[in-house]
Structure formats: C-alpha cells, structure tokens
C-alpha cells in the first residue's frame, strides 16, 4: 500500500496559519510525524488560502528541509503545481492531480514528463464528478491512455475513481469499488489506484470505522494507494492485516511490528540517501 500523508493541508487550521505567517514549525512537525509513521509521500496542499505559486514553493521547501520523503504536490491549479515542482530538490514527486479535462491533461502531462513525476488522475471531467461506474471508467481510461501516450509508464500513473461521502451519497461507494476493479484491467502491470480516503467519512459518526472498513474492501478490489491519515493507528493495523489476507506480505506473529519496522526502515533509508 502506498501511503500519501494528508495532514499538510491548508484546510487544517494550524497549516493555514503556518502558510499565512510563514511559520515552518507546524509544517515540519507534521512532515516528520508522517514520515516516521511510514508515509511514502507527504502531500502538500495550500488549498484556498493562497493562489500564489511561491506559497506552494515555500511549503515544498519547508517539508524538504525536514524529511527525505517524496512529496505529493497537491493543487487544482496548474501554476501552483508548477511552483511546487520548481522548488523540488530532485527527490521523487507525485503530481496531485490532473482530471480527464483535455486542457488540464495538455498542461500537466508535459510537467510530469519534465519532472520525471508520477501523476494522479482524478476521474473527473469538464462536466464535473461522475455519478456512475461507466463515466468513471471512461475518464480513467482517457487519462491513462493520454499519460502512456506522453511517455509515462503504468507505475507512474495513479487513477483516482473519486470517493464521495458515505453519509450523503451512499450508492457511490459501491460504484467506486466496481471502478477500482475495472481500473486493474487497464494494463499489465496495472496503474496504481488511489483515493482521497477521508472523503468517505465526511460528517459521519464512526469515522474511523467507516474509513478502515472501506479501505480494506477497496484493497480487495485492487486499491493500492491512498491519501490518508497515516497517523491513524487502527487504519494502519487494518492495512497491515489486509496485506496479509491478500498474500502481499508474508505472515509472522509480529506482523504489526513488521509493518511498523518497514516504515522505520523506509524512513531511515531515506535519511541515508
């Protein structure tokens, strides 16, 4: 499972304040905590707080100072993404994200090529978010084909079928599961499949339970990445267990410990490089 740590996002009050006041401390603290927990990427998102590419550059630089972990540059605005990419120190990067919108693809695919980046493609198009499986698959396939055409390998492509709140759009979760399964059939090896996990429990009671139940179900359908709260112990334990059940890891009695050690080894290795 590829874990993309969601916490450095301006929708959180402490990060919003940090961006406005250029206070590195909370940003670096969250970067370190998420890296230690085993994040494969640290997502950085300036949200609605700023539209300035230099603010994204600041965020990227601030995280880079603190941890060796790859970064996920998260914005809906191409110029802001570009600002983040320019600030990179050469470490692996994930562009989060494009949509199936032609204009977006035309702008972001060359950037992914130029920065040797991986790319999340959200199954959305100019008409908005799809409500059914067919359009999710159509948009995902379109992004996938365009990315391959541009020269990206399947390992650098992440498709996001768009997860919606269970409380408000109950029928969509099942559509997302079906879409995930379809995405796994796009190529061999398939692209990565990722969701913004916390969307599922928005405004709901039992947030943790809903989140991890969905995640293990989605893993069974082929999900292998998530933008999520990597500090959620119960969530990580569920992932570690699901990886065993799917026979992706070799069982040992101390498998939870092994999962944490993997995170620690990853973190150390990054520091050594």
């Amino acid at each position: 499972m590829i874990l993309i740590g969601e916490r450095i996002n301006a929708s959180f009050r402490d990060i919003k304040r940090a961006i406005l006041e250029k206070d590195k401390r909370p940003v670096q603290e969250w970067a370190r905590k998420q890296a230690a927990a085993g994040a494969d990427y640290i997502d950085v998102n300036i949200g609605a707080v700023s539209k300035k590419p230099e603010d994204m550059a600041w965020l990227v630089e601030t995280v880079q100072e603190a941890v060796p972990t790859p970064i996920s540059v998260d914005s809906t605005t191409v110029e802001v993404i570009k600002g983040g990419l320019k600030a990179l120190d050469g470490r692996p990067v994930l562009i989060n994200s494009t949509t199936a919108d032609d204009r977006k693809l035309e702008q972001l695919l060359p950037l992914a090529v130029e920065y040797n980046a991986s790319l999340i493609g959200v199954a959305m198009d100019e008409r908005g978010s799809p409500q059914d499986v067919a359009r999710r698959v159509e948009n995902g396939a379109k992004i996938f084909a365009a990315a391959i055409e541009a020269g990206l390998t399947p390992e650098r492509i992440f498709l996001d079928p768009i997860l919606m709140p269970l409380k408000f759009m109950q029928n969509q979760a099942k559509n997302v599961l079906e879409t995930i399964q379809q995405y796994t059939m796009l190529s061999d090896p398939p692209p990565h499949i990722s969701v913004g996990l916390s969307n599922i429990c928005s405004k709901a009671a039992e947030r943790g339970l809903i989140t991890r139940t969905f995640l293990v179900m989605a893993m069974a359908f082929g999900l292998d990445a998530a933008v999520c709260n990597v500090l959620d112990e119960d969530l990580l334990n569920a992932i570690a267990t699901a990886e065993l059940i799917l026979n992706k890891e070799i069982y040992s009695d101390s498998y939870l410990q092994a999962f944490r050690m993997k995170a620690a080894l990853k973190d150390n290795q990054g520091r050594r490089q």
Partner: peptide, 8 residues
Amino acid sequence: NIAKQVNI
C-alpha cells in the same frame, strides 16, 4: 512465517 518472526 517463523523465519520472518525470528528476524523481527
């Protein structure tokens, strides 16, 4: 499984 366990 025990091989892995011993290493852990």
